[in-house]
Write a protein that binds this DNA or RNA. Structure first.
Lengths: 294, 294
DNA sequence: GCCAAGCTTGGC
DNA sequence: GCCAAGCTTGGC
């Protein structure tokens, strides 16, 4: 089903972006629950065949927002994805069970070939500010195994600002176990986990940058009422799935190398000039100079 | 002299980085004042022939730190550049004239072919935090004409955190006019300008994102005791210089296109594979999968 | 391993 | 015009 979704994204991305978004939304929202849950497990990893910086990449990202929004709904919240671009979160979700809170969320996806995931790329403090005065919590959902593994400024920043760092894997585990907010069961303590951790004296000041994902796992397992052993088994399943995915993605790039080896001289040269973006650089400089030149 | 500096950077960048840094430092610190002032005018624009993501780019950036540090010394402060990498500012400067303050600074340079300068790339809130409890001010020095021209989150963030946004052009104007901190003349109000502006009621809350560079210009002109008309003439000179620079940089890229057109099929194909970084992608995925596979 | 130094395309 | 969505190399 995930493969079909990416096919649809590629197909729709030739249309007007807003129309394409609506088509993708309809496709995602009409999936059967079981199909949708499979998509949640895969969506954090952008397929290598989605080309970088392209409209299809933007539509893929939008699709991941729509997926996350449906996840929040399956967890028992009301949720919509937003159409803003600058200086705004992607998604809003709101409790419907009388707990009177709402949250903003940001969905992140990376390719397996992604190199440095920089602290600035997570925009923790910006995300925190995007809550504004209307929303209590803010949640970032990124691929679990692509978070910094030992320590990072994103952890101290998140503790500081009360940003909840979750992963697609976490969301998927909650869904697979049919966790749902009701009048008698609140998810609020998950969204609020960073603030709770910040009050935990075992996370000493000097160590604020330490990766707190294991702690996060404990919070979620406790909320779900499962043992850590069981929880780690869930995570391990996702790990295996990503490994399998990696083999496919490598095959894709090897195929690309083979294709290029068959190129004619003319094709290789023109594509080399294109790939090096030389004309674009010249155009950028010209436009810049022109602006300065009035 | 700037061209000679970039030549030296390319030459040294084949050496061990720390040794190369020392060579560059010696070269910069031994320049005559007039030569050095010419370098300050150019250093904000990375030459296109410095290749992206390379050691020479890193050494260029380091050179710009060393240049900025010498600028602070010429302005009458004590200053050193730091060798840290993550989670730290590049430069520290300290007042020697009895005003008892110190500051951290960050030097930024861009190529003329640089496309989006994203708000996250300025890392305003991080820079602010890097002051720690020891330093009063924090200063970002970037190319004047590459700052957002109308409005940006960087302006509201800077007002919020008291980050001083300056440019190479500003520093150069101060140097050209022989401005220097002394027992009777403090530069503190320049480094503190953002906090002062934040208190200015004419910068209404709703408009906090507005570009405050014109205001900054007024502060500096006032400090220097020159009229705005004169100050704008200075800025205009730099504008003309950048326009001239752009013509050279475009010539460089056109030369590259001509070179490529002469390539043999084999060379074009192998360089195309290299430029597309296909092997690196395969390697990154493999390493990632291997890490997950223990 | 983290993330500084850089970077591009396209949606609003 | 701004900056969301992504991205890489190499120094510590």
């Amino acid at each position: 089903m995930f493969d079909l979704l990416t096919e649809k994204i590629k197909e729709y991305s030739t249309n007007d972006f807003k129309k394409a978004t609506e088509s993708v939304r309809k496709f995602i929202d009409n999936m059967k629950e079981e199909e949708f849950k499979d998509v949640v497990k895969e969506v954090g990893v952008i397929p290598e065949h989605i080309s970088h910086d392209s409209t299809e990449e933007k539509l893929y990202s939008k699709a991941s927002d729509i997926v996350l929004s449906r996840c929040f709904r399956m967890l028992g919240l009301a949720s919509i994805d937003l159409n803003e671009r600058g200086d705004s979160a992607d998604i809003i979700a709101e409790s419907k069970s009388g707990y009177n809170y709402s949250l903003v969320a940001d969905a992140k996806c990376f390719r397996l070939s992604r190199t440095a995931r920089n602290q600035k790329d997570y925009k923790i403090t910006n995300l925190s500010a995007w809550r504004g005065s209307e929303h209590e919590y803010c949640v970032l959902v990124a691929p679990y195994y692509q978070y910094p593994q030992t320590r990072s400024q994103i952890y101290s920043n998140s503790l500081d600002k009360g940003v909840c760092l979750l992963s697609w894997e976490h969301i998927s585990i909650l869904l697979e176990n049919n966790i749902r907010e009701t009048e008698t069961f609140s998810l609020e303590s998950i969204w609020n986990a960073s603030s709770m951790m910040a009050r935990d004296s075992s996370l000493a000041f000097a160590n604020a940058q330490k990766c707190f994902l294991p702690k996060m796992n404990e919070y979620i397992a406790k909320k779900m009422g499962v043992e850590m052993e069981q929880f780690n088994l869930f995570l391990s399943e996702y790990r295996k799935q990503i490994i399998a995915r990696g083999k496919d993605e490598i095959m894709y790039w090897n195929g690309c190398v083979d294709e290029i080896r068959k190129y004619s001289k003319e094709r290789a040269i023109s594509e080399l000039i294109e790939t090096k973006k030389l004309q674009e650089k010249i155009r950028t400089i010209s436009a810049y100079v022109e602006r300065l030149d009035k």
